[in-house]
Write a protein that binds this DNA or RNA. Structure first.
Lengths: 287, 287
DNA sequence: AGTGACTATGCTTGGCGCGCATGGATGTGG
DNA sequence: CCACATCCATGCGCGCCAAGCATAGTCACT
């Protein structure tokens, strides 16, 4: 005499479809089967749940009550299964560039120590949300705040900016440069990176902006373009630490505003360890 | 390939019992059946949930996750069924004496008008919580605050006190009396009513207290005892309105403190309409 | 009265969950 | 070192029950 999930599904389908026949079709079964399932549910609960005749169908107050609870239970079960499957799946940390710079390795180490059974994958995703918007990642490190209400961000820390120059560039051996120096010399285009937005012509006053710009799609294109002398770039300190390249020199920019690194996650977490991981990141960054 | 409640129950039993064999016994089935159910659950979820060998058994992280959700779901289902069965059951309002006096009828009328499909039963329960503590009622009107953490009370209004006198008592024709008058005349005992506590010898200063007292168990005993001249009583105004009796006269007591009427309910509601009914009571009383 | 739309019931079958018997694995005591 | 106990997994056969099919009953509308 147990109520089972099929009973709850039957009640939900009948309530939504409006007739037993239509609900049966929706559930890929015949009307007699569903009719019996409903009758069985009523005898097991001990209460009439649906007022039905050949021309009319409506839920009783008890039916409405059970429908509400039943839908919540079914939704809870779906969430539980998703959660359970996700536990044994690696947590995917997305980034487009540099992850957390030199803090990346300490983060991975402390996470593995604290959660040995919760694998972590660090994946590069070359798009504006580093894979969050597409569901390819569970958490992400971003350099800009995406305009998407389904994604929550928090500022982590700020980084000084560096110029990325070909190693034969006149300024390549300087200890530091100023923004104006970069656009005063040879007429190199500025390499822009739409998906991260770390650099922008807005860094310069209108009169001093680079004459030309070139768009790149990922960090490899960016480095190669610069190394071959096709452009110069502006990045953040973390980039220099994480993405060394033989033909590229990184020189601190003295007068550029600092860049902010953001931690981002979906409004509805896609992995059960999301919150724990965010806490670990904050811990490593502030500690 | 659906996960069913039997799977969740199986996981919960195994986790609690510590071995499949013991869990099977607890579920009144054989070990092979339960073993298969667990294996089936794992294939349907797609994740290993229990690490087991002939000498060791432990939940995996995924198993722990599903166990937590599963227990919540099972508890939710139990609550849902209880709720559903209760919806079509009358809401039982308990009282020991007078209910809400002359406000009782307006309350019943407005409730029936607002909730035509939610029947209401008004039942007398001759004990200190008017049936709440025993689960015989869902809401109650009390004259005292019970010392039970499972019962919540709120003050509703106050009533003047009246003396209940045999109709041949010397004071029976007075417009009003004072407490001292009641103990100065013939040596009648005071009828006390342990379960409601509306009257008490504490009303009088020590020197003027009634010489004798008699305990009664319900309002009928109380009225009959007084009508036959065996005692006098002290009640609240509502008692006079609700419990008229040919041999009993009610006379206002000028110098007794007012009595408070309380609305009481279980900390864990036993009927889904509990809150709506409480609101209706407050509405009638204050309106 | 005929028709169409809907639910309820009798009958039959097929799937599956259960019990029984047994085998394999592992730790324990004589 | 070998019986022994304990526990989980698997093969097999049975019985229950949920689903499909066919049909009857009900109601509103023409």
């Amino acid at each position: 005499m147990d109520v089972e999930l099929r009973h709850l599904k039957a009640l939900a389908a009948i309530a939504e479809a409006g007739t037993v026949t239509a609900a049966a079709a929706r559930l890929h079964m015949t009307q007699p089967a569903l009719s019996r399932t409903l009758a069985q549910l009523e005898t097991r609960v001990g209460v009439r749940l649906v007022d039905r005749s050949s021309r009319h169908l409506a839920l009783t107050p008890a039916g409405t009550t059970l429908l509400g609870h039943g839908q919540a239970i079914l939704a809870h079960l779906d969430a539980a299964l998703a959660d359970t499957r996700a536990v044994s799946r690696p947590l995917r940390l997305g980034y487009t560039c540099a992850v957390l710079g030199q803090q990346t390795v300490p983060l991975l180490r402390s996470w593995r120590r604290a959660h040995p059974h919760a694998p972590l994958e660090v994946v590069r995703q070359d798009n504006r949300t580093a894979g969050l918007a597409t569901g390819d990642t569970d958490v992400a490190v971003l350099r800009t705040v995406p305009d998407d209400p389904r994604i929550r961000t928090e500022a982590l820390y700020t980084e000084d900016r560096v110029a990325a120059l070909p190693d034969d560039h006149p300024l390549a051996d300087r200890d530091r440069v100023r923004l104006a120096d970069l656009t005063a010399g040879p007429d190199l285009p500025l390499a822009l990176w739409p998906d991260t937005g770390t650099a922008s012509v807005d860094l310069w006053p209108p009169a001093r902006r680079p004459a030309r710009t070139v768009d790149v799609r990922n960090v490899d294109e960016w480095l190669n373009l610069i190394a071959t002398g096709g452009a110069f770039g502006v990045g953040a300190a973390g980039t220099a630490e994480s993405h060394g390249h033989p033909g590229v020199r990184f020189v601190p920019v003295a007068d550029a505003p600092a860049a902010t690194v953001y931690l981002a996650r979906p409004a509805h977490p896609t992995h059960p360890h999301t919150d724990a991981f965010l806490a670990a990141v904050r811990d490593v960054v502030s500690g």
